[in-house]
């Protein structure tokens, strides 16, 4: 039963992965990304990582993909790729190098040791166990992550604000 769920999730994730890079329109890429994220959440559940699975659905599927869709909507229609490629050799070279890279990864995975999966202790991967680790051992990184989030918000506002032309700036009230 577990294996069936794994096979279905794996097939969905791989199909979505192909869809992300092969779709003609960015909207389909974003929805394929959603497919990958959902199937990965199923895999996290299989790996007894309930908290991470919930986090995946809420943050990735709920926030990041929606953000992508908003930006695609904002830049509608004019997001196509040009016909002319400036670096013609880039495409075949990247296919070859990616193939080599994948073979190296698979070789490392299938010849490495330590294949058996340990039986996870009770309560492994719950909000309690992850939270306990997060608020004791990893308290400082946790706080730094919140600062990084704040910096990200400020950066998005600063970078994304409309550019005021110099002629219009003259009519603005002087800064305090």
């Amino acid at each position: 039963m577990e294996f069936v769920v794994f096979v279905v999730a794996a097939a969905g994730a791989l199909a979505g992965g192909v869809g992300v890079i092969a779709s003609r329109t960015p909207v389909r890429s974003a929805l394929s990304l959603l497919l990958v994220l959902g199937n990965l959440a199923v895999m996290y559940l299989l790996l007894s990582a309930q908290f991470i699975a919930a986090l995946q659905v809420i943050v990735y599927a709920g926030a990041i993909v929606v953000l992508f869709l908003f930006v695609i909507m904002l830049l509608h229609m004019r997001t196509g790729e040009g016909r002319v490629e400036k670096l013609r050799w880039q495409r075949p070279v990247s296919y070859v190098l990616s193939g080599v890279f994948l073979s190296a990864l698979l070789w490392a995975i299938w010849t490495g040791t330590g294949t058996q999966v340990a039986t996870s202790p009770a309560g492994f991967g719950t909000v309690e166990s992850v939270g306990r680790s997060l608020f004791t051992t990893f308290l400082l990184p946790f706080e730094i992550a919140s600062v990084v989030l704040l910096v990200g918000i400020i950066a998005a506002v600063v970078v994304g604000r409309p550019v005021v032309p110099p002629s219009a700036r003259a009519h603005l009230p002087p800064p305090e």
Binding site: I21, E81, G82, Q90, Y95, L97, S98
Partner: peptide, 12 residues
């Protein structure tokens, strides 16, 4: 690897 191919091949 799929993500890597996407970064290298796509231009959007």
């Amino acid at each position: 690897t799929l993500g890597m191919v996407g970064v290298l091949v796509r231009r959007n």
